[in-house]
Simulated assay, not measured.
Amino acid sequence: MKRVQLPDYLDTTAILERSGNRLIPSSAGWWGERLSVGMTRSGRFACRAVTRHGRDRDAAACVPGKASAGRSGRL
């Protein structure tokens, strides 16, 4: 699985809050890792779990360029 790519304004350790139609960094805290790193790690973990349990239909979503039947390819 390739690394998840996000726009720079979303790929940050800041927790973003909506203020009207703007996203602003929260003053209350931050994430422990960049959003793209966390999403990639979670996706890889999910793919390992799916393929380990032999669910071939779901495992297709973990192969680049393939999508499983009836799914959007999202993890």
Rank of each mutant, 00 (worst) to 15 (best):
D8N: 11
P7T: 09
S36G: 05
D11A: 01
S26G: 07
W30E: 15
A49G: 11
R34E: 05
L6Y: 11
A49L: 07
T12G: 07
A60P: 00
R41M: 06
H53C: 06
G65R: 02
R55V: 12
V50H: 01
G38H: 03
G38K: 03
R71A: 09
S72F: 12
C62G: 05
A46V: 07
T40F: 00
V63Y: 04
I24A: 03
A67C: 01
G20C: 14
A46D: 00
R22M: 12
A14E: 12
W31S: 08
G43A: 03
A59G: 01
A14N: 12
T51M: 07
S36P: 00
T40W: 02
R48Y: 02
E33Y: 01
G73Y: 12
A67I: 11
A60N: 01
G29M: 08
S72T: 15
R18V: 15
S26K: 07
R41A: 11
K2H: 01
Q5I: 14
D11T: 06
A61P: 05
G73N: 06
V37I: 07
G29K: 00
R71Y: 05
A59H: 01
G20K: 10
A59K: 01
G70L: 08
G70I: 02
P64W: 04
S72L: 13
R57Q: 03
G73D: 11
S68T: 10
R18L: 15
T12L: 15
D11L: 06
S68E: 03
S19R: 14
L75V: 13
R74N: 10
P7V: 13
G70H: 00
G32Q: 11
M1H: 04
D58C: 05
K66P: 01
P64H: 01
A67F: 03
L6A: 12
S27Y: 05
E33W: 03
R18N: 07
G38P: 03
G38W: 02
R74W: 13
C47K: 11
Y9W: 10
E17Q: 15
F45G: 08
T40A: 04
Y9G: 04
G43L: 00
A67Y: 00
C62E: 01
S68Y: 02
S72Q: 11
G73H: 13
R55N: 08
V63R: 10
G65D: 04
N21Q: 15
R52K: 00
R52V: 00
R3P: 11
S19Q: 14
